[in-house]
Amino acid sequence: MKSILSFSLNGAPVEVLVKTTDTLLDVLRESLGYTGAKRGCDAGDCGACTVIVDGLAIRACLAIALTMSGKEVVTIEGLGKQGDLHPLQKAFHQHGAHQCGFCTSGMIVSAKTLLDKIPNPSQDEIVEYMSGNICRCGTYVEVAEAIQAVSGGKE
């Protein structure tokens, strides 16, 4: 049994057929081909699937797709692209805040919502806010540096 889900994805309206058990991550990755959000744990623990829904960072793997009806969803693909990078994307790249890259899109999306909320975060606020995004390569120091570099609109 499938239903039609309508929502806004990176500023454009989309309609897609979904099962009641599909998560937002299933729909983004498998149905719509937006693979920037990663399936790391599929259980809400790692943060690799972080996307923005109506301005809030959420775990796409825990969100039932049908609850997204009428909402505004922004993924890493909506922040910027090659040739037109978001300042955070530029800073992550310049500061080497990514190694294998699998956690990176979730990190950048989380960082975006942090700076929307606190434009000039302290180191402690960055560490606290980003604690839900796990990086197994250990880029945490560089992630904090990249966020500091962008905060306050310095970059």
Partner: peptide, 18 residues
């Protein structure tokens, strides 16, 4: 800057599950 790193920060890097 990391080789292939622009794909990682823009979400366009293709991992096997992608």
């Amino acid at each position: 800057p990391r080789y292939q790193g622009l794909g990682e920060v823009t979400g366009t890097a293709t991992y096997v599950d992608d």
